[in-house]
Design a protein around this nucleic acid. Structure first.
Lengths: 114, 114
DNA sequence: GCATTACTTAGCCATATGGCTAATCAAATC
DNA sequence: GATTTGATTAGCCATATGGCTAAGTAATGC
């Protein structure tokens, strides 16, 4: 079975690269919230704030649903998984990489002595 | 003791939000490489590529060292840790959040029936 | 039914980003 | 010492980003 999640990590990481958006994610950990409620914590005009919501939604981090005139935001399950997986895979290989770095630096040192 | 790592995640996530830069990170997992060698894999003028290297360096993901006319890039130990930690902490709370989402949706359903 | 509320749309602005070419600099090489 | 090579600097360009105001729409409340 193919991966359900499109492996395009760029929009996901880009969505996380902003303190306002990370704060929204944290806020939504406490449960679904209307846009206006989320916006209260940020000193920013509503249209500006909505751009962040849109970006989070397009990155698949959150989903929203409009009921009446209220748009409610909630977390999209497993949205962070691709980012976590990528980082975990990289981190796993860094140990070896850093060993090779030591070897590299040692080699440089040796060459200086010659 | 205070945290050694500046907790500004934005430049780090921003650095990861580009396929060229993620490819460079992967390439450096195999060990230190000169800029020109890393650049070969990317169909891009060298000055453009160097901007990516600069961004990775300013985000603390890599470090570079110039020897003669060659600039060698290598991974900066534990640079990904803050991003991993943030994601792990969030992911830990999403289970609960999703339970609350179910509750929320059930409540909405109930209201529809009334 | 009129006002208020919660968004939404449209449009503007400054800066950042990701690309380019051309020209320069400095180390290696012939 | 002239040339090549690896990197850098300077400057240009188009588009994206993150902010704003003003005006519009649609649901709710009085």
């Amino acid at each position: 079975m193919a991966n359900q999640i499109p492996d395009d990590l760029s929009p996901l990481f880009a969505a996380l690269a902003d303190p306002t958006r990370r704060a929204v994610i944290k806020a939504l950990s406490a449960g679904p919230r209307p846009v206006s409620h989320l916006a209260e914590a940020h000193d920013m005009a509503l249209p500006s704030f909505l751009k962040h919501i849109d970006k989070l939604e397009r990155a698949g981090v959150i989903a929203t649903q409009k009921t009446g005139r209220v748009r409610t935001c909630y977390l999209h399950a497993d949205a962070l998984a691709p980012a976590q997986d990528w980082l975990a895979q990289e981190a796993k290989q860094w140990g070896d990489a850093l060993d090779r770095l030591s070897a590299h630096l040692d080699a440089v040192e040796q060459e200086k002595k010659i």
